[in-house]
């Protein structure tokens, strides 16, 4: 079921230069000039040492996404849903990034901002803010890791 292509009508044309061949040639010359003159505005300096890391058979030189949440991992279950609380999760892009990073680091554990799970990741600036938020949501420290940071457990 094959149709020969180009169609017969198209193969009858002559090999004489068509009227617009010069336009086409000029177009190609223009494009070649653009290519040769193109300077990427975002051209970056080369970092030889960093580039060498890309060829290493290991991830060791790199910090995993959400690695800041690493110390919490030992006190959290592998399969569950936990809550998270920070200073201002709703309005701060940086703190949302922390939440998303934590999700990346701890997956398949699920993290929610709803404060109704048995365990809660607390990642606040200091203990005063953390304890106020824990008190309002009905949590207490399960493992206090640093100033304003730790894992909280829901009050029964």
């Amino acid at each position: 079921m094959t149709v020969s292509w180009p169609p017969q009508a198209m193969t009858n044309s002559t090999d004489k230069k068509p009227a617009g061949w010069l336009i086409n040639l000029i177009f190609h010359i223009m494009v070649l000039i653009i290519i040769l003159l193109a300077r990427d505005p975002q051209q970056l300096p080369e970092h030889t040492a960093l580039q060498k890391l890309l060829w290493m058979p290991s991830n060791k030189p790199y910090l995993a996404t959400g690695a800041a949440i690493g110390p919490f991992k030992a006190f959290l279950p592998k399969r569950a849903t936990v809550s998270i609380v920070t200073d201002d999760l709703e309005n701060s892009a940086k703190q949302r990034e922390l939440w998303y990073g934590a999700q990346n680091f701890l997956a398949p554990l699920l993290i929610t901002k709803e404060e109704d799970e048995a365990l809660m990741i607390v990642y606040c600036s200091n203990d005063a803010i953390a304890e106020e938020k824990m008190k309002n949501a009905g949590y207490r420290w399960f493992k206090h890791l640093a100033d304003g940071k730790g894992v909280a457990i829901k009050n029964l």
Binding site: D40, Q42, Q43, L44, P45, E46, H47, L50, Q51, L53, L54, Y62, T65, Y100, G101, Q103, N104, A107, P108
Partner: peptide, 29 residues
Amino acid sequence: YFLSKTSLNPIGGWDVIFFWHLKARFFFR
């Protein structure tokens, strides 16, 4: 250019980190 940029930021942009790689982690882990 590609190597220069990816060596500085090997994990990519926002969507890549928080959408695409997250889903891949669920598959892998």
